[in-house]
Design a protein around this nucleic acid. Sequence first.
DNA 1: AAATGTGAAGTTGTTCACAGCT
DNA 2: AGCTGTGAACAACTTCACATTT
Lengths: 227, 227
Amino acid sequence: MPSGACRHRPVPYLGAALKKATKTEIPRKTVYRLSLYLRCLQRLKSNQITTVSSEALARAAGVKPTQLRKDLTYLGQFGTRGLGYDVDQLARMITAHLGTNRLQPVVLVGVGNLGSALVQYQGFGPEGFEIVAAFDQDPERQRGGELRVPLYPMSRLPEITSRLGVRMAILAVPAAAAQEVANALVGAGILGILNFAPIVPAVPEHVALSNVNLAIELENLSYFLQD
Amino acid sequence: MPSGACRHRPVPYLGAALKKATKTEIPRKTVYRLSLYLRCLQRLKSNQITTVSSEALARAAGVKPTQLRKDLTYLGQFGTRGLGYDVDQLARMITAHLGTNRLQPVVLVGVGNLGSALVQYQGFGPEGFEIVAAFDQDPERQRGGELRVPLYPMSRLPEITSRLGVRMAILAVPAAAAQEVANALVGAGILGILNFAPIVPAVPEHVALSNVNLAIELENLSYFLQD
DNA sequence: AAATGTGAAGTTGTTCACAGCT
DNA sequence: AGCTGTGAACAACTTCACATTT
């Protein structure tokens, strides 16, 4: 859900996605949860906890123990029966599979309220991502404080993303501009877009798209309230 | 997910959830997509378009036509074969089922960077939600501009939520405070929490929880980039 | 005893293929 | 002809039950 919500592009069923099927494809949802486990492991590590059971880790991540264990089998076997998992080893194993050792540079487009907050947000620095540049239609517009990163006009998008080797972008523009900006991102060679605009932009097959729509998250939540 | 993230609480399989099974339960994911369709319909309406085919609407929502049609069957039949759907009628039908006619009041806790941006964000006003109050540990802290809504200290949470009949909350505090604040929300009678903190707080069975985790969304996206 | 690992069973979600209106 | 509606087939995902290891 969001993450929410939010959701992914429709994927063809037994898609060409599995191309060569090298390392027994990890299910999509498992990949998502692995990130979650990793985050919990990091907290455990910083609390000097070295060993954890599937039950404890599952509770921290908000999933069931059997699901956690099933998820981990896609990476191999690291647990010690009767004991649990080595926190540090498991964290390294997940990191290796998710491929987030290398720090991924990200650009953000649309420096309004939400965009500014996202730039300021320290949440993903430690997780291997860094917003390295921001773009806006009107870079001169007055904003609250100092931005952490250089702010450029849209026209410089292709030049700068290619120079910095950026492959992912955060889209935080109003609905009316979203499709146009998405096109510009694709044109600049961006391969993954995290979209906060309240419409779903159309993008070509080869571009990954995740949508986070706050209104939909709330609406969805309200549906599941029990009266 | 939500894109966020984000995601939902683990639900027991053939759960007590279906209690009385009154109106042939709508699948969870369908509920989510209905919100999406609704948004697209509203755009069509504001463009004076009165009729739409499943194919066109599906493309706008980023899903496949068959899925859209299947989703709509849970609400009944409104299409005209050979023609398509009446935009206005379909929008009203979805709204009726999602139950977002009534304007839902929402509170926000944690008025930092992200929290301020969310309060300012106009995105969900038109969709039937309204942030009616904000809470923060330190309400005196200096913030960029004027907030749109009254800002209270945490201690007044129970009083104000019960007075305004608030059932949903947005949680935008740092990880370290998230569990404690979640407890306070539950104690104040909140039934649905949209969580932006980078940990998953534990909440009792009867409280609905949606998580939006920006770092996880990015990580997930990066996994699905093709190299 | 305490925990992991996993095949099999069960559940949910998606797509197909085509029947049925207009 | 064109488009919706839907049972049935298919695929993905989750949980169970229990064998297995420490």
